[in-house]
Design a protein around this nucleic acid. Structure first.
Lengths: 177, 177
DNA sequence: TTCATTTCTTGATCTGTATCAAGTGCGGAC
DNA sequence: GTCCGCACTTGATACAGATCAAGAAATGAA
């Protein structure tokens, strides 16, 4: 990974837990306190909110080579509202918050790396919010199609719809244009 | 600040630049590459996007005791879309990215602190996005009113409206209920 | 293969919020 | 004080996207 020495990378490899998991596996669920940060080496994870009416709203897709966690629970240590589910068989690495904390204490290259990683995540989230606020449903759909067309082959359209902040019907109509 | 030794706090005090600035001061503007992270000790800052039609859309309010920067420019080093303006006379501390980077290299308590700080910011942004996606205009208005009623005395309503993602007319109607 | 279930599409209608258009009221300049 | 400009309100109308409803297509189990 960028900005880390070979020794740091080795330490990461030692501390992170590797798991090969099947499609459908739930990494964490509503009401739990998620104590891990995850890295998707291979595969695809979908994190979603469950509404009272039973509907699921996709908050985020995490494809290969991306970090994710339940930011609400992870930082504040309260039960999360998110469920995180594997959309495909995946290879997932994880580290607990306390392990990370310990690593940050020992190694400031790592702390710096963590800081940069979270900055990157934050920047992406900022962009997402900006688009939600200023773009029409059609613009958001087209942007996703341009940026990440494979997602349409990898997850169900209804999940993409809720990620875009629209209903499946609206997405269907946009696709028909 | 939480999690920092007295020595660390002293170092922060040395590196951060203190400025007393007047209401109306622009900290950074569209097209610039913002190289600072700011901390508002006292006062209030509003960061906003400027649309083609001349309208301003508030992205964020940063009241006393909060950190902020232009995440898009800061991390990717490209010109920002944001303008940051003092809504009140304020006491602002700032540190450049390179100073921060240097500090992170020397001191991992600081790196850890930076990591935690950005986690906190990210969590707030997550919540904001979640609300934008799932709440009606009225719910968002009521949530802001409950959480941070002073803001209605401190900034113009039209800026609150765009922060809530609605027009001034809609905010006016909500307030009339 | 067949049947059942779920996903996706298509159509009709409804609704929240935007937009357009006039006000009203207030604060600052003089 | 008077006037100007801007912030805010209020009303009428328009529209994007939601909701409701029904059918078509895909998926998966037996």
């Amino acid at each position: 990974m960028a900005g880390l020495s070979a020794a740091d990378e080795q330490e990461i490899a030692l501390v992170f837990k590797k798991q090969i998991l099947e499609k459908g596996t739930i990494l964490f669920d509503v009401g739990e306190t998620c104590r891990q940060i995850y890295f998707v080496e291979r595969g695809l994870v979908r994190s979603y909110y469950s509404l009272q009416n039973g509907k699921e709203i996709t908050a985020w897709f995490s494809p290969e080579q991306s970090f994710f966690t339940a930011i609400d629970t992870f930082y504040k240590q309260k039960p999360t509202n998110l469920t995180s589910e594997l959309v495909e068989d995946s290879e997932i690495y994880s580290i607990t918050f306390s392990q990370l904390d310990e690593m940050l204490n020992k190694n400031h290259a790592m702390a710096k790396f963590a800081f940069h990683t979270i900055l990157d995540v934050t920047q992406k989230k900022s962009e997402y919010t900006f688009n939600l606020k200023f773009q029409t449903a059609q613009e958001r759909y087209e942007a996703l199609l341009a940026e990440y067309p494979q997602i349409f082959q990898r997850v169900q359209l209804k999940h993409i719809a809720s990620f875009l902040g629209i209903t499946p019907e609206t997405l269907s109509r946009l696709r028909a244009i």
